[in-house]
Amino acid sequence: MPKDHGIGASSKRREDIRFLTGKGTYTDDMNIAGQAHAVMVRSTVAHGRIKRVDTAAAAAMPGVLAVFTGEDFAAVGGNPAGWLINSRDGTPMREPKRPVLAHGKVRHVGDAYAAVVAETYQQARDAAQVIADDSEIEELPAVVNMAAAVANASNRVHDEIPDNVCYDWGWIEDNRAKVDAAIKSAPHVTTLELVNNRLVPNAMEPRASIGEFFPGTQDYKLTTTSQNPHLTRLLVAAFVLGIPENKLQVVAPDVGGGFGSKIYHYGEEALARCAGRRNAASPSCRTRMAETT
């Protein structure tokens, strides 16, 4: 007989009841009193130099509470990579800053370089469009093909990285000569060239974040679609914004799938936290975005 409870039993899921009756609470389901809405202004070109971002007209539009550009985050940290990999020659990987909002250059279609916070989502969208219209981005040739990226040193994603290579890694370097010799002397060698296709996780719930600031205690709260709220707290507090960890609470409520896409601490999360503070009259800020990656 299969077990009917405890370890090894196919107990029915208790969480199903709220999901089946429409009572789950995902981030975008929340509506905090005075909640404002943020919309990102995203690059429409893959590679470009930011010549001008004029936010004056947008800032004066109805309902607009705050505007942000890359300039506002130039002094804080970038979103860090989780792992430091060393190349075969022992040198550490090249790790360009990943800013909260793009600064100087945009480097992919969808790279956010400004953001608008407004009383309603539609007002924020309208103002974001005005910033896009009032910005000038000089399009540069895009580095798309990997072989060409390595071969063509004149075309750089990051100006400081000449060959576009992050690292050249060998595992295990000490095995190499032995492996080469074994292959050379083997009776048969099968060779295959293949492409692991690039995928998008597409968890059904898009990403969303709500940042809140409590002026009385100077505490922050970030509600976000995360697979790892503690890690997000550590990254936002210690690495990106440099605020005490004990002043930031991170909540990941019901989250509609992750598959890896909700591990990373995204710039929008840091932005929602900042927008909450800037915008003291409406102390929370919601961003909702579909994945573009």
Partner: peptide
């Protein structure tokens, strides 16, 4: 849906 584990994250479920 509950009896047959027809949902996991619950987002598409409604």
């Amino acid at each position: 849906f509950q009896d047959h584990h027809g949902l996991q994250c619950g987002f598409c479920t409604p």
